[in-house]
Design a protein around this nucleic acid. Structure first.
Lengths: 188, 188
DNA sequence: CAATGAGTAGACAAATTGGTCTGTCTGCAT
DNA sequence: ATGCAGACAGACCAATTTGTCTACTCATTG
């Protein structure tokens, strides 16, 4: 089916969770903002947490689609594809609705690792790690897993740095450090 | 003054905010856990937000005291002092009550930069940056500010990585990357 | 001894929380 | 035309939220 209302609801909820946080965004606020009745929410989702999971899934899809597009602007050049992650971050940080990463924030607000929401956040980051690992392998890195982990540290670090201090030139700094690490991993 | 009850209240609140998050931790829960009457809370603090600010201040003090102690285990060796940050992270991550950084989490739950809570988080990270900058300068780095920024990206990245995926060997990975960046910044 | 300041328990208020339920209406397919 | 699925508005619920207020107790200290 993939109801149109359901999609719209998830979209609106995504924006609001992004802007205000999960706990701070009440069901009623989402409904009135989306112009949707309460029962259609609870018809599509069995709880607020369930809606949050749907939001995270939507975001996960968006993110990888967007990242892949940025990376495929450098076909064949694996090194450039790796660094394209940081150009993508730069573009993301420019948006005036940037409020950090929905997954990192979810892990912060739902701290218990066994919580499905927390687990979904972990799964997203793991997917990104796998993706970067594969890319690093293609680029010829000696220890692709290690390089991928390093790049993720820089990326996540840049995200929270920008989130905490919106003035910080986090993406550019991260890219500079990433370039050093990539080059080191490739020649070594 | 420095009332004993006030201190105890802040301590308990700190633990609970850490464990559950800010919004998810209600005033009543804090009070019953601390064994303190509601009016003594509102006698010492004018609101929950005000209590949160006190918690952040307390944590800021704790953190720098703890970090300085770790760093002073390597007197004179500026390079080792910089890397000691990552040993400190390792130790922190081992604690079974580790639930991420109170400041990063605060910025996530209070996303508006002008919010005093968010601002306090930013101030904390700025202080750490200044501290690392000075250390990098003493170590003889060519661009101390840049090195400090890079180390903070790795540190914050490691914190959220560990928070999202408690299995990740984030501190060790971060230290490895940090060593590369430090050495590069020193010889260059 | 008496006064004072700090703490207590707990009632209370007003708003908000996530969630359920009822009854009505509309648009689409048979 | 009829029937049905899906969405609607909104009442309602019990629990919880932050915050205020009152009345009582208990030490310390002059």
């Amino acid at each position: 089916m993939a109801s149109k209302r359901r999609d719209h609801l998830v979209d609106q909820a995504l924006d609001m969770f992004q802007a205000e946080g999960y706990h701070a965004t009440g069901i009623d606020k989402i409904l009135s903002q989306a112009g949707v009745a309460k029962m259609t929410l609870y018809n599509h989702f069995k709880s607020k947490d369930d809606l949050i999971l749907a939001v995270l899934d939507r975001r996960d899809g968006q993110f990888f689609q967007w990242l892949n597009r940025r990376m495929h602007q450098h076909p064949g050049a694996a090194r450039d594809q790796l660094l394209a992650l940081f150009d993508a971050l730069e573009e993301w940080f420019q948006r005036d609705d940037f409020r950090g990463c929905l997954f990192i924030n979810a892990a912060a607000e739902y701290p218990t690792p066994s919580d499905p929401i927390h687990a979904r956040a972990a799964a997203h980051k793991r997917r990104l790690y796998e993706s970067l690992s594969e890319l690093a392998r293609q680029a010829g890195a000696k220890r692709p897993g290690e390089l991928a982990a390093h790049l993720m540290l820089l990326s996540d670090g840049a995200i929270v740095t920008k989130q905490v201090n919106s003035q910080a030139p986090a993406a550019a700094q991260a890219k500079k450090a990433a370039a050093l690490l990539v080059d080191h991993a490739l020649v070594a």
